[in-house]
Design a protein around this nucleic acid. Structure first.
Length: 260
DNA sequence: ATGGCGCGCGCAGCGCGA
């Protein structure tokens, strides 16, 4: 089972890139972030015409998440129960016994800002939510734009970024808290080249110079981490005309064959 | 990298992203 995540930075604008990538990469499930589309205007037709089932939770202009899958999901849930939030940032569905949660973690804008405080509160609620989801769904994958670069090796210039939003100690502690639930960073299950990132600033030729951050992640519960065969960033779509500033990330999970 | 771009909204220029 191939599970992917991609912050598309506007689903409407990125539709051609998305459909191309779905065709070539052929994931079973992909989580999208920053669809920036209210539900009534969600462009289901071209997606369904390409053979995908969809679940989505969006709003005008900002945020918005979706799950696209080859087979229909069950137990679809938007948002986190018990955390009232106008901002559409979470959607979950199950595919067989595999639970997939797609998340768009708040950016936080600047350390100490109201948006940063909201980010930390949000991450606290997310941690509690994942704890309860793990109890119900031991085969859990949590994917999305976490807006956190977990370690210095996930940052092109750790000195320049030190202490700023996306790398601040409190954000990194929150990320470690997610790992502490028993989730595993799928990318780190395999050796990766130095300078493996998932986001590059549009400005200053950030991508060409590989001035990036690794902030999009696939976290897998122990049961699924044991079945993870690969995890990769596909930078190809970032090279296209009018790209998203994020690249898709995917992981392949294959259960061990049953003993004879 | 002080910013530089790209998005939505809406028709000018601003808020936001990371």
């Amino acid at each position: 089972m191939k599970i992917a995540t991609w912050n598309v930075n506007s689903l409407k604008v990125r539709m051609p890139h998305l459909l191309d990538w779905l065709g070539s990469a052929a994931p079973d499930v992909i989580a999208l972030q920053e669809t920036k589309t209210e539900d009534a205007a969600f462009p289901r037709a071209p997606i369904e015409a390409a053979g995908w089932h969809v679940a989505f939770s969006g709003q005008k202009t900002y945020n918005g998440v979706a799950l696209l899958s080859r087979r229909p999901g069950s137990h679809v849930q938007a948002g986190m129960p018990g955390f009232a939030d106008e901002q559409k940032r979470v959607i979950a569905a199950s595919y067989g016994d595999v639970r997939v949660i797609g998340a768009y973690v708040p950016n936080g804008q600047a350390v100490g800002s109201d948006k940063y405080e909201y980010k930390l509160r949000w991450l606290e609620a997310f941690t509690a939510y994942l704890r309860s989801e793990l109890e119900r769904w031991p085969r859990l994958v949590v994917v999305g734009d976490y807006n956190i670069a977990p370690e210095d090796r996930d940052v092109h210039d750790p000195k320049a970024w030190e202490g700023s939003v996306l790398v601040s100690p409190a954000e990194r502690a929150a990320f470690r808290g997610l790992l502490g639930l028993g989730l595993h960073d799928a990318m780190r299950l395999f050796a990766q080249p130095d300078g493996t990132y998932t986001w590059w600033d549009y400005r200053a030729a950030g991508f060409r110079r590989n001035l990036g951050l690794r902030i999009d992640h696939i976290l897998a519960s122990a049961a699924l981490a044991a079945e993870c065969q690969a995890c990769t960033v596909d930078v190809a779509p970032r090279k296209l005309e009018r790209p998203s500033d994020h690249a898709p990330v995917w992981a392949e999970f294959t259960p061990a064959p049953a003993l004879p």
